[in-house]
Design a protein around this nucleic acid. Structure first.
Length: 623
DNA sequence: GCCGTTTTCGGCCCGACTGTTTTCAGTCG
């Protein structure tokens, strides 16, 4: 019986929650199941395996009833309770929840009253004007539902970070000159740098909210106005994306920003802390609660508002928490560690157990860059010059090896020819540095292009070049593009073959995922991390906004297992050198500091690390 | 369904917007 993954378990509990809600059960029952689904999804342990081995982890929200269900799922992969629910509530009803404006209560009513069981039924009923027979529904409701169903078909998938960034910039620019505007920025999952973004949440502070909201809904790119109020408006742009605009008074901007940055799980924790201390927290700030747990009114009423986030966290005796960490993955506990023995934040508070996160400015080079020698767009000198202008101390040129024919991979002769080009280029850099003609940003140790390769790990687990040639590169980056359909065992063996080579220094985009529709490879991750850590093989956080691989959680786990990481752009053109910023985003979401990433060090440090690999591999036998 | 320096019941995070409800429920984030 194959083991269910945490993601699969979470899906099951989310489905139970939806089914219960449609059934009309107590909403808190559904809430309880969703909370557990959340907890499982973010759990670092394999929940099903742990249950099967009779050492269930402590998960918040799991009581006797749900523990029993987890046991059943772990042992049999099935759940009688879910199957019974599915029998009572047609599964196709769940699809109706995707229609905007249709929630569980509406689905319940439509099913009870009109026998509507799927999207087709709903469309036919709306077209026939049958919905208005239900209390609370009119012809307008029918039109809205039809429009919603039509919209589902051309619903765009989630945005990549890069797409979201362009959209934010566009809207912000169009609103920038609005009278009264004090401040405007993106909050939500975009600010937390989640790999993919559903819709954009903008937060503004303005002296004239009405004017700002009016301007927002009248933007040329707006197709449809979804909501239009003085505090909150929402639009759908013509490319299908939704943008929400919240408008805060400047004096309470801090709590608004916390609230709309989320995550929801993080906010729930903050509100619980506030409540323990006798305050209710919302986007508007803190409201004093009476002994009955209700806000005090009249004379006794008391509120606290803050213009910045630091003060909001400070009021709860917490240091400010970076947006990237706000996922309730331990950041609250880490922040609480900054409190003194009296439970208060000291005068000059430290960061508690919060990590000092890496920043883009910490990077001193890029270990994964292509040129027009393989599938890149720009010439070597052009890529190199762009990198030099960024103030880097090096790039590693990593054109593909011959096995990746589709990318015009280099054979031995072209590798050697390319090396001559680099020799001449580096000689030129050295002359310029000696003569003081190098760009001002050039670091003290100068700028060099190191010779590397993106080495194909072949389908039969052999490497594309022989050891002698591999040994002649400064840095070898190995990756796997072909034979993706093999079993987890085979794929893992191929990655391990690269890790165990004394010449392979970096595993690039280890999971092989593409956010635009290519799933992760099913690797045996714990083994990969352990062997990478033992041999000192670096694991890449690929910053291409379509890859983001390793992602935040894998990077964190790898680091915890002792791996060192490298953040690379995988640039195929000069503009893509900026992709490292998204890689840094993933690292920050993974609680990673500059010291755990090799390309924050000097060129010498990188080369020394690489040179030591054969020893580390050899030590294997001795261990 | 879960949980308890508000523990075995009665809560469960909080508020804006919409539509049609003449006082509020449903949806959404």
């Amino acid at each position: 019986m194959p083991l269910l993954s945490n993601a699969e378990l979470a899906r099951i509990f989310y489905e139970i929650a939806d089914l219960l809600e449609i059934k009309g059960e107590l909403v808190y029952k559904a809430v309880a199941y969703r909370r557990v689904a959340d907890a499982i999804e973010r759990s670092p342990v394999e929940v099903a395996r742990a249950y099967r081995e009779h050492r269930p982890p402590r998960l918040v929200g799991v009581g006797a009833a749900i523990a029993e269900k987890l046991e059943e799922l772990a042992d049999t992969g099935r759940l009688a309770y879910l199957e019974r629910l599915r029998g009572e509530v047609p599964r196709t009803l769940l699809e109706l929840l995707a229609v905007p404006g249709v929630g569980p209560r509406t689905v319940h009513t439509l099913h009870e009253r009109l026998g509507i069981a799927d999207l087709d039924d709903l469309r036919r009923a709306a077209e026939a004007g049958a919905l208005r027979s239900v209390r609370g529904m009119t012809e307008r409701t029918e039109q809205a539902i039809l429009a919603g169903i039509a919209g589902l078909a051309r619903m765009p998938t989630r945005m990549r970070l890069g797409q979201a960034a362009r959209l934010v910039e566009k809207v912000a620019e169009a609103l920038a000159s609005t009278p009264g505007l004090v401040r405007l920025e993106a909050a939500g999952s975009f600010r937390r740098r989640v790999p993919t973004i559903g819709d954009i949440d903008l937060l503004a502070a303005s002296g004239d909210p009405r004017a700002l909201a009016d301007r927002f809904v009248a933007l040329a790119s707006v197709e449809k106005v979804l909501a239009h109020g003085p505090h909150k408006s929402a639009v759908q742009l013509n490319e299908g994306r939704q943008v929400d605009l919240m408008i805060a008074p400047p004096g309470s901007y801090g709590s608004f920003l916390v609230h709309f940055t989320g995550s929801k799980a993080h906010n729930v924790r903050l509100r619980a802390i506030a409540r323990e201390r006798g305050w209710s927290l919302s986007e508007h700030g803190f409201v004093r609660l009476g002994p009955d747990g209700e806000p005090l009114t009249g004379e006794a009423a008391e509120t606290r508002t803050f213009p910045d986030e630091e003060s909001v966290y400070g009021f709860l005796d917490l240091p400010w928490i970076e947006p990237e960490l706000r996922e309730d993955r331990g950041e609250i506990e880490a922040a609480m560690a900054a409190r003194g023995a009296d439970g208060r934040l000291p005068k000059d508070p430290g960061r508690g157990a919060l990590p000092t996160l890496i920043q883009v400015a910490d990077l001193r080079g890029d270990c994964h860059v292509h040129s027009d020698w393989s599938d890149g767009v720009h010439a070597i000198e052009v890529m190199a010059e762009a990198a030099r202008q960024r103030g880097y101390s090096w790039i590693v040129l990593t054109d593909h090896s011959v096995g990746l024919g589709i990318a015009r991979g280099l054979d031995v002769e072209r590798v050697l020819a390319q090396r001559e080009v680099l020799r001449a280029l580096n000689a030129r850099y050295q002359r310029e540095e000696t003569e003081g003609r190098a760009p001002e940003v050039t670091p003290r140790d100068g700028f060099r292009v190191l010779h590397g390769v993106e080495l194909e790990i072949r389908a039969d687990a052999t490497l594309d070049f022989d050891d002698a040639l591999l040994a002649s590169f400064d840095v070898v980056v190995a990756s796997l593009h072909q034979g993706r359909r093999q079993s987890a065992r085979q794929l893992t063996e191929r990655v391990l073959a690269a890790i165990h080579s004394p010449h392979v220094d970096i595993i690039a985009h280890p999971s092989g995922r593409m956010l635009t529709g290519r799933d992760e490879l099913p690797l045996e991750w714990e083994i990969v991390y352990a062997e990478a850590a033992r041999t000192g093989t670096l694991l890449e956080i690929n910053g291409s906004d379509n890859r983001l691989d390793l992602d935040d959680e894998r990077a964190r786990r790898a680091r915890d297992m002792g791996c060192r990481l490298v953040i690379s752009s995988d640039a195929h053109r000069i503009a893509e050198l900026d992709f490292v910023a998204y890689g840094v985003d993933m690292a920050r979401r993974g609680w990673i500091g500059a010291g755990e990433v090799i390309n924050t060090g000097s060129r010498d440090e990188l080369l020394a690390w690489v040179a030591a690999k054969p020893d580390r591999v050899l030590r294997r036998g001795a261990a």
